[in-house]
């Protein structure tokens, strides 16, 4: 376990910094933007699709279970990413109309 921490210390530092950055970066959000912000953050955690792509791309072509599950993971991840960004954009579209007025 200690070895593991030693080997991953770079990553652990990133985690620590990102925790503080994540809190800092949205600290002053007005309540009007809570929903679009949540939706945007929802789209960003769609990065999980990278993991799905790697898993899919590494699967042996005769391991049907891995292929099938990986395929499903890629579909779900893509849904999260594409749907998330598009729905956020639609929410924000309405703010823009107001601005132009």
């Amino acid at each position: 376990m200690l070895d593991w921490i030693q080997n991953h210390q770079q990553i652990i530092y990133i985690v620590l910094l990102m925790v503080f950055l994540g809190i800092e970066v949205i600290g002053r959000v007005p309540s009007v933007l809570h929903t679009p912000l949540m939706s945007g953050a929802n789209a960003i955690h769609g990065v999980v699709i990278i993991g799905a792509i790697i898993v899919m791309g590494k699967a042996e072509p005769d391991n049907y279970l891995a292929l099938l599950l990986g395929f499903l993971a890629v579909i779900l991840g893509a849904l999260n990413v594409a749907g998330g960004f598009v729905v956020t954009d639609r929410m924000l579209e309405m703010f823009k109309q107001k601005k132009s007025k």
Binding site: H8, I11, I14, V15, M18, V19, F20, L21, G22, I23, V25, I26, G27, V29, H34, L37, M38, A41, N42, I44, H45, V47, V48, I50, G51, I54
Partner: peptide, 21 residues
């Protein structure tokens, strides 16, 4: 798991920001 900095950054960022939100 994959030592993938993009996943790590995006994920933790959302994890922290989402909790605050």
């Amino acid at each position: 798991l994959y030592d993938n900095k993009a996943m790590l950054t995006g994920g933790i960022l959302v994890g922290a920001a989402g909790t605050l939100l």
